[in-house]
């Protein structure tokens, strides 16, 4: 059995996270006072991370960029609503997950209007099994569709863990739940995802 190691939350990473959080608070205060450079620094710090988070559940690249733009636009317009009671990144992740979820809901509503049989929705087409010729892009699509079809409570936790590498405690902070709930939902999320992606998983 191939031994693979997964990153642990190291003390260095924790120190880095604390430093970033302190920097964020100062940047947010300056951006709120109209300092464009401070806002730009926040965007440069988080844009790629938020893109990866959103791309975990939306496959279309144009749509992902639109959603990410919307997220930062909302944040820019509503910086004053961030009350500094939690870290900036937890607030940013919440706005991001809510915005991406709204996008998925809207997309589903639009599809419902154009599809005669609505029962075919929300059911990724995994018939046919893995194809030898299936390229990486197709696999990406199957994966993001499978993640998007998970209930929100499972999807959010899975994305924060696997696409942002947050610790259980950080996820609990973002989603305002206990660490135990994070563990349980993550377990269920992986089980559900496994059954959806079964034909595409490589055993190793």
């Amino acid at each position: 059995m191939e031994a693979i190691s997964f990153r642990k939350t190291s003390p260095e990473r924790s120190t880095q996270a604390v430093k970033e959080a302190a920097d964020d608070q100062s940047l947010v205060a300056r951006a709120e006072a109209g300092d464009q450079e401070a806002f730009a620094a926040l965007v440069h710090r988080y844009a790629d991370r938020i893109y990866t988070l959103v791309a975990g559940m939306i496959h279309d690249r144009t749509a992902v960029e639109d959603v990410v733009q919307d997220i930062f636009f909302k944040v820019y317009r509503k910086l004053s609503a961030f009350q500094g009671r939690s870290s900036f990144y937890t607030w940013l992740y919440r706005v991001s997950l809510n915005t991406a979820t709204d996008h998925l809901k809207k997309k589903r509503r639009d599809r419902h209007r154009h599809v005669e049989d609505p029962t075919v929705l929300d059911r990724p087409d995994f018939t046919g099994g893995p194809d030898e010729t299936m390229d990486r892009e197709e696999l990406r699509q199957k994966t993001s569709e499978a993640i998007a079809s998970l209930p929100t409570k499972y999807r959010d936790i899975l994305l924060l863990r696997e696409y942002q590498e947050l610790s259980y405690e950080e996820i609990a902070d973002v989603l305002q739940c206990s660490k135990g709930t994070v563990e349980s939902r993550l377990f269920r999320a992986r089980a559900r995802l496994r059954s959806k992606l079964e034909p595409y998983l490589k055993r190793g």
């Binding site: 693979i4 997964f6 990866t52 696997e162 696409y163 992986r190 995802l193 998983l201």
Partner: peptide, 12 residues
């Protein structure tokens, strides 16, 4: 669990 985790890591 390892299979799922590896798959998602590759996807990310």
């Amino acid at each position: 669990l390892r299979d799922v985790k590896r798959h998602l890591e590759q996807d990310r």
